[in-house]
């Protein structure tokens, strides 16, 4: 007969093993590499902090980080604005088609990322659907849509928004919509009822959605590579470059560690928004 502690450990073993092998070990290795140096594509175990000194003192790399933070914030806010009404509509009025409708929001995931980005190129690019249509009517093309940060923003929003919709939808499944009616009966206008009832009670789902959109956007590279144009390089692009063409693995590892630290910090900050779990919509059985 195994004891409760052993039983808990046994249950936790698969999850723990996964974390150790796929998160902890790679993380440790990039932390180690980040204190080494690269010379002509060769990784040299020469312990130093030069990579971090460059990273924090050279405005070049901080520029990419700021660009990515701004992009991730913009994409998260846009997704939030779009996802709430969609998730609300599906959860409240979807009826027996709720599952089908929520699955439809994830339909783009049935294709690969490259295919989705390429499809966006066909819509936003200089010879894309929008600009060709404008040209057909004798109008000038919209330059902001062609290989620009705006194009990357649209692309990244399109790419990650389904996660936001899903997180908010799952939260709304446990939400009692009658509370909104109660608020309105007691004199609250629609917006006030939303911000004082629906929003705080679904804060956990909203925060999870924000994390699920913000973190991948922060490290993304493919979308900006294809849609971003000459001024569209993000932190992820330069990070990928270190492990590809330039072969500067040590510096790339330092960049990776910084990205991880920033992602962790953002997650912790967002988690603080859910201080009161009950008010955030999470119910825990007492006693």
């Amino acid at each position: 007969m195994i004891g409760p502690v052993a039983k808990t450990l046994l249950l936790a073993l698969p999850g723990l093993s996964f974390l150790v092998v796929f998160l902890f070990m790679p993380l440790v290795s990039i932390v180690i590499f980040s204190f080494w140096r690269t010379e002509s594509y060769e990784l040299i175990a020469d312990w130093n902090i030069d990579n971090y000194a460059t990273l924090f003192s050279d405005v070049t790399y901080l520029t990419f980080l700021v660009r990515s933070l701004v992009m991730a914030t913009a994409v998260t806010l846009t997704s939030l604005l779009y996802a709430w009404p969609v998730a609300y509509l599906i959860a409240k009025h979807g009826g027996r088609y709720r599952l089908v409708l929520i699955l439809l929001t994830a339909a783009p995931f049935l294709t690969g990322e490259i295919l989705r980005v390429t499809a966006l190129q066909q819509i936003l690019g200089p010879i894309g659907l929008i600009n060709m249509a404008l040209g057909h009517f004798g109008l000038a093309p919209i330059r902001a849509l062609m290989y620009s940060n705006v194009a990357s923003w649209i692309g990244l929003t399109y790419l990650w928004m389904p996660f936001m919709v899903l997180a908010i939808y799952l939260s709304l499944l446990n939400f009692d919509f009658q509370l909104m009616e109660v608020a309105k009966v007691n004199g609250a206008r629609v917006w006030r009822a939303f911000f004082e009832v629906a929003w705080p009670l679904n804060m956990a789902g909203t925060v999870i959605g924000c994390v699920l959109v913000f973190i991948p956007t922060l490290g993304s590279s493919l979308t900006s590579q294809f849609l971003g144009g000459p001024n569209g390089a993000l932190y992820g692009n330069i990070l990928a470059h270190q492990f590809g063409a330039t072969g500067t693995w040590a510096f790339g590892s330092a960049m990776g560690v910084l990205l991880f630290a920033v992602s962790l910090a953002v997650t912790l900050v967002l988690a603080r928004a859910v201080r009161d779990f009950r008010r955030a919509g999470i119910t825990i059985k007492e006693g």
Partner: peptide, 18 residues
Amino acid sequence: DAPSSPEKWERVWSEVEA
């Protein structure tokens, strides 16, 4: 050819991109 110093060229390219 390979760049004479991949590290130096990486820095230049990053500065151009930024």
